[in-house]
Nucleic acid binder design. Structure first.
Length: 168
DNA sequence: TAAGTGATCTCT
DNA sequence: GAGATCACTTAA
C-alpha cells in the first residue's frame, strides 16, 4: 500500500525537510469515508486524476488538509498526510508549512515548492502502528473501522501529542 | 467537551 | 437559495 510506504519519506517545503510520521489512506469509489465515495465533484476531481498531485481542501471553516493523490487515472485514491516530525495533526501541519488551496492540483515536484523525497530510510514493520482512521465515524462501522491509518511508533518523534490517536 | 468557521454538497 | 455537514484544533 502506498500510504504505508510514505512513512519515513521526507516532505520538503521551502528548503525545509520533515520526515512523514503519520498518514491515512482513502481508497476507491466504495470507501464511504472518502470524499470520492459519492462521485466526482468540483472539489474532489483531483482525486480522480493522475497520481503525484496534491489534493488540498478546506474543512471546519478554518483548516486545510494536505493529501497526495495516489491512484491510477480515473480511480479516486489519496493519502492524507496527518503528521510530520515535530508536528502532529493535519491542520497544524498545513498551517506551519503555509499550505493552502493554492497548492491544490499542483504536482508534488520541485517547481511547485512542495514535494516528497525518498532518502532511503526504511521504517521497520514493527515500528509502524496501524489504526482506524480519525474523524470518519460518519462513514459507518465498515469503513470507519478499516485500519488505514499508519504512524511511526517512536516515542522520540511527535512526543508532544503522540498519544492523541486514542482521544479520537 | 464544545464552540468556532466557511466551503461544499444536497435538497427545495 | 437554504440548510446540514465536515478527513480539526484549541481552550477550558
Amino acid at each position: 500500500m502506498v500510504a504505508e510506504n510514505l512513512l519515513g519519506k521526507f516532505l520538503v517545503r521551502d528548503g525545509r525537510t520533515f520526515m512523514i510520521t503519520e498518514v491515512e489512506a482513502y481508497d476507491g469509489f466504495e470507501d464511504k469515508a472518502s470524499h470520492a465515495s459519492r462521485g466526482e465533484t468540483p472539489r474532489n476531481k483531483v482525486m480522480f486524476g493522475e497520481a503525484g498531485v496534491w489534493y488540498v481542501y478546506f474543512v471546519y471553516g478554518m483548516h486545510h488538509m494536505l493529501n497526495i493523490v495516489t491512484g491510477a487515472e480515473g480511480y479516486p485514491a489519496a493519502v492524507l498526510i496527518r503528521g510530520i516530525e515535530g508536528i502532529s495533526g493535519p491542520a497544524r501541519l498545513t498551517k506551519s508549512l503555509g499550505i493552502d488551496w493554492q497548492m491544490n492540483e499542483q504536482k508534488a515536484i520541485h517547481a511547485s515548492g512542495l514535494w516528497i523525497e525518498d532518502r532511503g530510510i526504511i521504517i521497520p514493520k514493527n515500528r509502524i502502528e496501524r489504526t482506524p482512521r480519525i474523524g470518519v465515524a460518519y462513514a459507518g462501522e465498515e469503513w470507519a473501522g478499516k485500519p488505514w491509518r499508519f504512524c511511526i511508533k517512536d516515542r522520540y518523534l511527535n512526543h508532544d501529542k503522540f498519544s492523541s490517536p486514542e482521544n479520537r
